[in-house]
């Protein structure tokens, strides 16, 4: 399981809820990165040999390897294209996002 957006996050509305000093919880994702994307990577699972190069090189760690087929977390994929560029089987295509 990849981390996911904290949909329950609310900004503090009173002093008691205010964070202390300049510290707080770890791993609190309050915004997705999908809006950054111009192209989205799409895996052709027929061509994929699970070499995991994409999984390893992905700067954002959005490729999942727990299922039988590799997955992509499109909430946090920025569409950099490293996965497609490094795939030895050209199994990943970068498809223009429809706005």
């Amino acid at each position: 399981m990849k981390p996911h957006l904290n949909k329950d996050f609310r900004f503090p509305t009173n002093e008691r809820e205010m964070l202390f000093g300049s510290g707080g919880d770890t791993g609190n994702l309050t915004a997705v990165n999908s809006g950054w994307r111009t192209f989205r990577p799409v895996i052709d699972h027929g061509k994929c040999i699970r070499c995991l190069f994409c999984w390893t090189y992905c700067p954002d760690g959005v490729i999942g390897k727990e299922d039988t087929e590799l997955t992509i977390d499109y909430d946090y994929c920025k569409g950099c294209g490293i996965c497609a560029n490094e795939c030895p089987k050209q199994a990943i295509s970068m498809i223009k996002e429809e706005k």
């Binding site: 990849k2 915004a31 997705v32 990165n33 950054w36």
Partner: peptide, 13 residues
Amino acid sequence: DEELLYGAKTCPG
């Protein structure tokens, strides 16, 4: 598969 750094606002790539 657990990610200990995730959702960072680094530039793509």
